[in-house]
Design a protein around this nucleic acid. Structure first.
Lengths: 139, 139
DNA sequence: GGTACAACCTGTAGCGACTACAGGTTCAAC
DNA sequence: GTTGAACCTGTAGTCGCTACAGGTTGTACC
């Protein structure tokens, strides 16, 4: 039965003190008991939960999804199927972000590389940015 | 010498009216002349510039970089070398975002796929989120 | 028991790049 | 002259924090 100040919780979870309080305000981490003076007092369960949150955030889940998943765990209404749905939806989001960034990377690299060659053209990067059409690289 | 209302400029550039005004406030699009009644009146040069901004944004440049590039074009102090520096730095940022997202994708996919198999384990996704360590996927 | 000072508290404002109003004015067509 | 879409300004909200300001509490040491 460990007892932790917010600072100690912060160190062990590697989550910023301000962020911990922010999670509490957002209803993602439950409000812990307080000392007589008003300081927060945490227990192991909070550390566990905070680790879950950090790990989810590292994987790119937004706080709404994190709250949903934790809410399911808390209430009895949890199905692994529901959790899987959230995770799968998020995986799709991550994959489409990767696709977007790869499209950027391709166009950017082509643009930056273009001027490397011989002559002294005005500025191929600017030209590409000025006369380019919409999103999708032409061709 | 085309004359455009903000609505027409918006249609042609595919940039939201509110966003156009936002760019003006941020000093990225110059404030155009007004009608007697106070409506903004744009010319072709604004469309050109706005297309540049849109295209840069689609490639992920932030507004500070866009302003820097446009500032160089406006003042005489532009070198293609400076432009290339900005673009190359941005390319690095894009590439590291891709790397981050790929790491997420790998871990996420492994996590989601884990429970597909036979038995009826509690919930492998939750387990992974609860007992996972820091950022880097182990193994 | 006193004192110093780190750690804590609340509440608010800022970031970036928009978006979405509210509440009012102007323009264009008929 | 009248409608009504388009425009105007200014402000607040989004997301996930981060960074104060200005005050209070906890704790270690003498």
């Amino acid at each position: 039965m460990t007892v932790l100040s917010i600072g100690e919780l912060s160190k062990r979870s590697k989550v910023n003190v301000e962020t911990i309080r922010y999670y509490e305000r957002r209803g993602i981490l439950p409000a812990p008991p307080r000392t007589r003076g008003g300081h927060r007092v945490y227990a192991d369960e909070h550390l566990l939960r905070l680790n879950f949150i950090r790990r989810s955030r590292e994987l790119g889940f937004d706080l709404v999804s994190v709250r949903q998943m934790l809410g399911m765990v808390d209430g009895g209404n949890m199905t692994c199927e529901n959790i899987r749905e959230i995770a799968t939806a998020h995986l799709d989001v991550v994959r489409s972000k990767i696709a977007d960034l790869k499209r950027m990377e391709t166009t950017l690299y082509a643009t930056v590389a273009r001027g490397d060659g011989g002559g002294d053209p005005e500025c191929p990067i600017l030209e590409a940015l000025f006369d380019g059409g919409s999103e999708a690289p032409r061709r």
